[in-house]
Design a protein around this nucleic acid. Structure first.
Lengths: 172, 172
DNA sequence: CATATGTATGTAATATCATAACAGGTCAAC
DNA sequence: GTTGACCTGTTATGATATTACATACATATG
């Protein structure tokens, strides 16, 4: 079992705005993969070659990829090139908390904080397409409170924002 | 120009949980149509027969309909039955603030509060499929604050929750 | 009234996203 | 080494959405 993640050794990982902060991305991705091994093992699930490869592809940068983009990459690597190949691997990663689906984009992104229980909000830059995970704890609890007042019980909620990331704001 | 909307005369309309409250839905829908006339006129836009009909269809109940569902209804009424017919009318209604798109469902719902500036959260019942608009003011401002802290500027945000409405909770 | 202009609608074709159903392969437990 | 669970491959199809172009309609203007 790998050592627990230590943000102190991961420039960028310590901040919640990982996608927007300069950081050692190779480390960031390698670390995520290592944690993925641990998490799936702990869950009794198998991080098979296809699944692992899909996670690697998603981890290449902090953006969201469509299932067919992933599929094309898989096919280039010699895996099957039918949609279910990609959808199944992506579904598995989402179930394991290793990736998230971005509703607004019909696309998927690697989870920036695997293993930590969280229900993030996504900040999507409409220029560079980068996707950051924000914690959204207070937004979510405000929403829960309002729903409760209406007698509605929330089971899952989606919070996604479209706009400009810090870098893209500076050069309009 | 129709009289301004008076919630006092619209049982249910005064509450934010319109979709879940018992109310005179015929009045609710008729009123929304009337307001739609006023709003489009004020915007210099035309509420043409197709567009009006689409709005009527969406207003039939507080649920979300897919573009192809709407299209089938239009075709039955003698309008064209190619996808752009429905998508264009829906897009128009969304632009005019008369309908909303529910990302999670790839579907559309009539706006419950047309004419009032708002950026609602949607509460979607997974059993009866009803969709309520919540104001989500505090959730949205919490989200804005967090994004601002990360240097991200939000232009549009989507807040959608899936769960159980009051009625469906009572009979599981 | 004629006609130019912008806007709306109709239609064909196609792109994009997603799943159902089944066949075959892999691997670990027994 | 057979069983059973799970994973992958493949075919087919369904669901959602857009592009491009043609036609019709409305309004403003000569």
């Amino acid at each position: 079992m790998p050592a627990p993640h230590d943000p102190a050794h991961c420039p960028g990982c310590a901040t919640p705005d990982l996608a927007f902060a300069a950081h050692d991305h190779a480390h960031c991705a390698a670390d995520a993969l290592q944690r993925a091994e641990a998490i799936t093992a702990a869950n009794g699930a198998r991080l098979t070659p296809v699944r692992r490869r899909v996670l690697e592809i998603l981890l290449e940068d902090h953006r969201a990829l469509g299932a067919y983009d992933v599929l094309a990459r898989l096919a280039a690597d010699g895996y099957g090139n039918q949609p279910p190949i990609a959808y199944r691997a992506l579904e598995f990663l989402v179930e394991q908390g290793l990736a998230h689906r971005i509703q607004r984009l019909n696309a998927f992104t690697a989870c920036a904080h695997p293993g930590e229980a969280h229900a993030p909000a996504f900040l999507i830059c409409r220029v560079c397409q980068s996707v950051a995970e924000a914690t959204a704890t207070s937004a979510r609890s405000a929403l829960d409170a309002e729903a409760a007042q209406l007698g509605f019980t929330i089971e899952r909620s989606t919070i996604e924002a479209l706009g400009l990331c810090p870098a893209c704001q500076d050069q309009p």
